[in-house]
């Protein structure tokens, strides 16, 4: 005996795969944008924000970082409706990704902020910059530049983790694969193709983020 691999279904189902690919791409682009923004905000609160808010953000970060993404997703999609917060599967998936990346992003950005010495703050103020201006130009941008590689890999990890949103029936790549293999009974081949799509996406996303880093942080030798 011997198993004969059969990839003849690809043509027929390429539309389904493309649709799934589109949702995964959309989720990570939107999710990463808002997730990084949330991470920066939380890092600001933890490092320089009002004292009362710091432990709240700290608890959020620890809670998210020490529970599985799948459970966060289920809690948002199945648990929150009993509090009257109802949402579709795509919104729930997006929200879970933003909340998840926000917590990791917070820790990463905070590490970058903490590397800023006190003297740099004082130098900023002595130049007549306001607190916010100092934060933006003296603290945040150099910090982001320092931690951009770490943040990029976290974004890729969140993209790969997003494969589980198919479990709440959000129609991403893995959902497309589940659908196709239930029709063709070619489970192994289907998941091979889906896995290769994810691999290509991860490699492309890494390159894209490198490019974004180039655009956001053109040579700033003064940054360090």
């Amino acid at each position: 005996m011997g198993y004969v691999f059969d990839y003849s279904w690809i043509g027929e189902y390429s539309g389904v795969l493309l649709k799934g690919l589109w949702l995964t791409v959309w989720l990570i682009l939107v999710g990463a944008t808002f997730g990084v923004a949330l991470g920066i905000f939380c890092a600001w609160v933890r490092a320089l924000g009002p004292k009362w808010a710091r432990p709240i953000v700290g608890a959020y970060v620890e809670l998210i970082r020490n529970t599985p993404f799948l459970i966060q997703l289920f809690f948002i999609f199945f648990g929150l409706p009993s509090l009257g917060v109802q949402m579709g599967e795509t919104q729930a998936a997006l929200l879970a990704m933003i909340i998840n990346l926000g917590a990791y992003g917070c820790e990463i950005v905070r590490a970058g902020i903490q590397a800023t010495t006190k003297g740099q703050f004082e130098a900023g103020w002595s130049l007549g910059l306001s607190r916010i201006e100092t934060f933006r130009h003296v603290v945040l941008i150099p910090a982001l530049q320092r931690i951009w590689p770490a943040l990029s890999s976290q974004i890729v990890i969140v993209m790969l983790g997003s494969a589980v949103v198919s479990q709440i029936a959000a129609e991403d790549i893995s959902y497309a694969a589940d659908f196709i293999q239930s029709r063709t009974f070619r489970a192994f081949e289907t998941y091979i193709v889906a896995t290769l799509i994810y691999l290509a996406l991860a490699i492309l996303l890494r390159q894209l983020l490198k490019g974004v880093g180039w655009v956001l942080f053109p040579k700033r030798s003064a940054a360090r």
């Binding site: 198993y3 890729v156 790969l160 983790g161 997003s162 494969a163 589980v164 893995s174 694969a177 489970a187 192994f188 998941y191 091979i192 889906a194 896995t195 994810y198 691999l199 991860a202 490699i203």
Partner: peptide, 17 residues
């Protein structure tokens, strides 16, 4: 570079091959 979920599926269906 690939999702753990896909690896689990491939392991599950691959081993049964």
């Amino acid at each position: 570079g690939t999702p753990l979920l896909m690896q689990l599926f491939l392991s599950f269906f691959g081993l049964s091959l």
